[in-house]
C-alpha cells in the first residue's frame, strides 16, 4: 500500500447523494482476476454514452479537472455492493482522497485498505466548499498527520476523524495482513477455546 501524508490538489465534484458502488464500477467490469486497470471503467455509464463517447457535462469529463486527485461527492458515498473494485477504480483513475459528508461502512474500510483516504466533512464545510467552487477555482489541502482538510489560501478548514490505527497504517503504508499473521500464537490460543458449535 502507498503511504499517504499530505496532498494539495484540485477537486472534482459529483453533486449526487447515495452514489453506490454499482455506479462507481458496474458489475460487468468485475471479471478481472487482478487489481489493475479498473480506472478506465470508473463511473463508466455516467462517463460514456452507448457509442462510447464521453458525455458532456459529467464532471469527470471536464478537461479542467483532469489533474484533480480529490473526489468530492454527496452524502452516503459508496453504498451497496462490497466490491473493493470500487476503491481500486477510484485510486487507479488517479484520486488519492474522497470527500463526502458520510461514507458507507464497507466502502470506507476498502478505501483505507488501499491507500485511498476517505475524509468525512460536516455539511457546513461541504456547502461552503461548493459555494466557493461555483465562483472560483478551488484547491484543497489534506494533512493526515494533523487530520485537517482546508481550502488552499482561504480561512476554511476543519478537522476530520480517522481511526488512530488506520491513520498509522496509511502514514506508513502498512496493511493489516502482516500484523494479523504476526499474532499467530494468540490466534492458536484462541482456537483452543473455541465453541464446539462454531465449526
Amino acid at each position: 500500500m502507498d503511504k499517504f501524508k499530505t496532498l494539495r490538489s484540485k477537486l472534482v465534484h459529483l453533486p449526487m447523494h447515495n452514489i453506490d458502488t454499482d455506479q462507481i464500477i458496474p458489475a460487468r467490469f468485475l471479471k478481472a482476476t487482478d487489481r489493475k486497470g479498473f480506472g478506465d471503467n470508473l463511473f463508466r455509464d455516467w462517463r460514456y454514452d452507448q457509442n462510447n463517447n464521453l458525455i458532456d457535462g459529467f464532471p469527470l469529463n471536464d478537461p479542467s479537472t483532469q489533474s484533480a486527485e480529490i473526489l468530492v461527492a454527496g452524502k452516503n458515498f459508496g453504498s451497496g455492493s462490497s466490491r473493493e473494485h470500487a476503491a481500486w477504480a477510484i485510486y487507479d483513475y488517479g484520486f488519492k482522497v474522497v470527500v463526502s459528508t458520510f461514507f458507507a461502512d464497507i466502502f470506507k474500510g476498502n478505501a483505507l485498505n488501499n491507500g485511498l483516504l476517505p475524509v468525512q466533512v460536516s455539511q457546513e464545510f461541504y456547502e461552503k466548499l461548493l459555494d466557493l467552487q461555483s465562483k472560483e477555482e478551488v484547491e484543497l489541502e489534506v494533512d493526515l498527520e494533523s487530520q485537517k482538510i482546508s481550502v488552499a489560501g482561504k480561512d476554511i478548514s476543519e478537522q476530520f476523524e480517522i481511526n488512530p490505527y488506520k491513520k498509522k497504517c496509511l502514514l506508513n503504508g502498512y496493511d493489516d495482513i502482516d500484523f494479523l499473521v504476526s499474532n499467530k500464537s494468540e490466534i492458536e490460543k484462541y482456537e483452543s477455546t473455541r465453541n464446539a458449535f462454531a465449526n
Partner: peptide, 19 residues
C-alpha cells in the same frame, strides 16, 4: 460482507481487525 483485501486477511490469519 468484506472487501477483497479483507478476504486475503482472513485467508492468512482467520482474523480481521474491526472497530
Amino acid at each position: 460482507g468484506i472487501g477483497t483485501s479483507q478476504v486475503a486477511m482472513v485467508m492468512a490469519s482467520q482474523c480481521l481487525l474491526q472497530s
